[in-house]
């Protein structure tokens, strides 16, 4: 495990090709209290399955998604008002704030199902999930952390990508989940949500 963490840290560092802007997590906390906390929780640990957990999420991922919401490119009605007229600096600050919080598994996790875990693990290996999201699924830069996320939210997200209802910065995710059945996605979500 320690090796995994070290490796992930090295890879994450290598992926940052540019010096990170001086984002201010303290300012981010102020903005988060006004705009984010009501749904995502001030601790970034939403306990509503449809609302993603942001604690420990990659700052690069949060930043890009908030820009896409603000610019009307990724259309999720609930995210429209909270990102409206938010400055780039505040977006980066909010991202830095949530990224700085420790992540933890949801309290309402489903019990671990051995068959689903095995099937999910096999699909993750075949689809190379760990290549981008790293073998410990902590994510890096614009590629999100998958662990400690709601299982239902992960399944919802992958279904959106599969059905072409969501496109990221590029179409890597659409390709990665192409052709998966609902049962495949459910198993993959179960496996990813139950990583330590």
């Amino acid at each position: 495990m320690r090796l995994g963490v070290t490796l992930a840290a090295v890879l994450a560092a290598a992926a940052f090709s540019l010096p990170a802007a001086a984002a201010d997590p303290a300012r981010g906390a102020v903005v988060a209290a006004e705009r984010c906390a009501a749904c995502h929780g001030m601790d970034g640990k939403s306990n509503v399955a449809e609302i993603p957990r942001l604690a420990g999420q990659q700052a690069g991922f949060i930043t890009l998604q908030m820009i896409l919401f603000r610019e009307g490119i990724r259309q999720v009605p609930a995210m429209q008002a909270p990102t409206e007229k938010l400055s780039d600096t505040d977006v980066e600050a909010v991202a830095a704030y949530f990224a700085s919080l420790p992540s933890a598994p949801p309290e309402d996790s489903t019990p671990r199902d051995a068959a689903l875990m095995a099937r999910g693990q096999a699909i993750s290996a075949a689809r190379n999930c760990g290549v981008c999201h790293l073998p410990n699924y902590a994510g890096r830069a614009q590629m999100p952390r998958l662990t400690h996320q709601h299982e239902a939210f992960l399944a919802h997200t992958m279904t959106e990508y599969r059905d072409g209802n969501r496109v990221g910065i590029d179409t890597q995710m659409n390709g990665a989940v192409q052709g998966l059945s609902d049962a495949d996605i459910a198993a993959l979500a179960h496996y990813l949500a139950h990583q330590d």
Partner: peptide
């Protein structure tokens, strides 16, 4: 598209920057 991806590769598109 994934056929031919070498085992253990960590290649992924670089993150764009969409802030000023």
């Amino acid at each position: 598209w994934a056929v031919g991806r070498p085992e253990g590769s960590t290649l992924a598109p670089h993150a764009p920057r969409l802030t000023v």
